[in-house]
Structure formats: structure tokens, C-alpha cells
Design a binder for these strands. Sequence first.
DNA 1: CACAACGTTAAA
DNA 2: TTTAACGTTGTG
Length: 517
Amino acid sequence: MSDNKLQFPLTVCTDGEEFIINKEEDPTSPNQFHHDYDGDRGRSKRRRRCGQCGPCQVKENCNKCNFCLRRDVLKQTCIYRKCVYLRSKPKPYPSPQGGQDFNQVTSPPPSQSVAKNNRTPPASSLQDGPIVSGHNAQISQTSAGTFNPFTPVSSAGGPNFSSSDSLFKPPVPQFSHPSQPSMAMGISSPENVLPPQIPPYNPQTMPQIHSGHSSMTMPPCVNDKMLPRSSQESSSFSSPFNHQHVQNDPLRYDSYFNRFSRTTPTNDPRTNLPSPCMHHPGLPSPYHGTTSHVDRGPYNGHYVRPPTIPPYLPPSSNMLRHFSSLPQRYPMHPPLPPTGRYGDGYSEPSQYPAAYNSYGLQPTDMQMPIHGMSHHHPFNTFSNINRYQPPQYEQSSTCPKNVCGPPAFPSLALGTLRVQERPQGIHNFRCNPFYRPLPWEKQFFHPIHQPNSAMSDDSSKMSSASSGFECDVICIDDMQMNAYIRSDGCNSIEIEIEDPHSPNEQNKYDDIKKKNN
DNA sequence: CACAACGTTAAA
DNA sequence: TTTAACGTTGTG
Ligand SMILES: [Zn+2]
Ligand SMILES: [Zn+2]
């Protein structure tokens, strides 16, 4: 890895865009948590949102899910905002003794005191959906001390998961093949520009669930490192990202077709996809409605801690459980789905499938946003979106979520860097990764089968095609190197830099390039 | 179990 | 006090 030659975090500028590159951290670092809920210290009776997981980043209520729609009665938080860690059943209260029922779900990271910001501010804006919080421009706490419960996001839709089963059964190796699209480095993301990834709630762009399996009701995985199928698509949306990409016309390996190619948006069917955000052609939408606060944010010592190490890579999934409050199709106004909180095995702590991946977006910094959210209303407040970092799996580990095998590509040997766009964008719910159905949400969104859709039913294909992978040459601090760039389809790009001094790697690259010819 | 309802906790 | 939403309980 070329890490040793670079100092992180690095700031990389490409085409006027600045990115922050952080070295990957070990999310598993234990010492980062502390909690009280199940711990003893003044344990509170209730767990609190961790403030770090993907859903916790969502600042706005979707206003479409059952919980939102029936908030008064159900008194539940928006399905899209439900903390991953709270999805498991709470441990029986006064369980004074060490019955750590859910050892994994105990406490959140030392909550950054910052978390308090989580509380949503007055809402000023209203749009339709939740907002992902982001960093404000302050970057933050980066340090290693930061807990990263979740890794980032990938956007929405993670890889295809069909069902919980899929967790165990590697879908298609996402990494095994280089794959398609990813965003090129220069991403221009002016404020108000949508992230490419969030395909509007268009049935066609919605992640499709693998049919034939049990239904998954959880919201999407946002952390997957792999490029979710939808991400891909989204990346092709006309968006700053894409545009940039086009400009760069990077060489990319299209796994789907098994070959390298230069991008040509023009003929790429994907480019015909709808704009990433139906609501944001570029401007904020009108505000309408009242607002309401949302969560109170994490509180020191009160969270339930996200799964610790092993837990974050569990076999099954709590997260994959049904989350029945998800609307069928967000933007649409479909029939309401049922609401359920722990259902479907959510309760099983042991099941945090991909806790990390599934949910976590790892904001570059842990800062919580400050935007208000409206309860029953859309808002048009833009919040800075986090530049979510790609998931950080152990180096050789595979994406837990896609239990697929390890990346069978050079990437393994390469150091992984996370490149994040410098914080600046603002997005509303629709533009936020969470907005899209998360993996577990697929069930809700997928219902609409679109035979003729650009999206194939063959999840295998989609899957492989979704691991955006492209090799390109980038320059960092005057150093040129080959790098594989993967996009999460949203706000993050993962760049794997080859160690210039590693002949082997070089060869690998060469090989790859040759294929292209 | 999935779901619905609602008491209750706790932040603002 | 109000509001958000966690945890529990009841039903099918
Ligand atoms: Zn909602
Ligand atoms: Zn959380």
C-alpha cells in the first residue's frame, strides 16, 4: 500500500473538486464505545439512537412510511430514521445482572458530544423527505477515535440482497470482478446538486429485490462498499458526477460486458435514467407545512452500542428483517405497508447482519447536522450531506453484507483509501442515500416488477455490475499512481491506490489494462 | 412472529 | 409542558 508514502488525511483536488482522503480505520476498535444502557452506569431505561448509523443520519422524516403517517398513534420514528441499533429488541429492563442480552447492542460510541446537534433544528425547510445529516463544514473528528459503526454507505441499495439468506450465500461476487461504473474523481457538486445516487423513487430505479425469497423489509443498506446496483444506475444519472465522469472519460472496466471501455454517456442507456432527484432539478423546493423536531440525538452514555467487532459482521441479520413501515415506493403514494419494529427477527441481536454495512454511513466526521426536519411535511432545507465513507471492512474481509468472497482483484493488495468529497452539498431526503430503499427495504420497493425495465431481474448481473470499478491514474500530491476507483454511488468514492513499488500490483494492473485491448 | 397501540421516558 | 419515540403489551 502506498499509504506509507502518503500522509493522511490527504486533500486531493481534481478538476476543481476537493476530496479528503482518509486512511482506512479499523472500525472494530473496541475502545470506542461506552454506554450505559445496558451497562450499569446510570443506565437509562431507554436506549437511544446511536447517531452514527445511516438511519441516524437521516434528519428528516419521510412522511410516507407508516410510522410517519401514523405517528400520532404509533409513536414510532420514521422507518428511515430508525437507528440500527434500536432495531433489535431491547434488553429486558431491569436486568441488573449481567445478562447482557444483547451484548452487541449496547452502547454507542462515545458519543461525541456533538451528537447533540442531532436534534433537529427548527425546520426550516420542508421537502419531502428526510435529510441526511452531514457535516457541516467542519470536519471533524476524524480521528481514529471515531467510531465508525457503519461504514458508509453506499448508497442505497446495497448490493442485492435477496433475503436474509443471501447473507450467507454470496451473491455474486461483487468484487470479484472489476466492474462498472464508478464515479470519476472530479465530482462537481455544487450545492443543490444532487448526489447522483439517489435515483428518484422510480420504480424502475428502485432496487429490486430478488424475488423468490423471503421478503426483506429493512431499509437499505447504505454502507456497502460495493456499488449497489442502484448506485450504478444512479451514477449514470445525469449528475455532476456523471458529467464529470464523462469529461474524464475514464477507462473503466465494465464487468457486465467484461471489458474495458470508455464511457460514452450518450449511448449508455443508463444515462436515460431520470434525474437523481426528482425534486431537485437544482433548486430547493418550496416549503410547505409545519415542521417538527426529530431526534434528540445521541447522548453520551445512553446509546446502545453498536455491534462491536464481530458483531458487525454477523451472519444473519437483524437488519435484514422486515421493516414493515416502509412505504412501498417512496415517492409514490402507494398503499401503506405495515409497520413493525422488531419484527422479522429484528430482535435477534445476534443477527446483526451487516450492521455495518447495512446501515452505516460513516460520515466523515461524526457531526450531526443541523437541519430541521419536518414531521409531516416535506422540507426543502438542505443539509450538508455527509460524505459518507465507504465501508471499511477489514482489509481482506469481504463485505459482510455481501458475503461474497473477497475481492478477487488487485484491490485486495491495494491500500484502501477513502476519498470523500469535501463537505458541502446539501441534500434532502430524496437525495440522501437513505432515501432509497435500503436493502431491507427492497421488499417494499421492489414489488413493482418491471419486466421491461432497464433493471434486470437478474440480480447476479446487476450485482456484478454494481461494483463500480475502474482503473485510472490519479495524482495525489504530485504523485501519479494507478488507482481503482469505486463509487458508492453517492457521496463517496473509494480509491484503491496501487503501490507504485509493488511490481506485482503493477502487473496486475497491466493485466487488467491489457484486457481492455 | 408481525402488527398495532399506547404508556412512558426523556429531551427540549 | 410539549414532543419524540422507546419499550411493552395485546391481538391474531
Ligand atoms: Zn417515515
Ligand atoms: Zn443509529
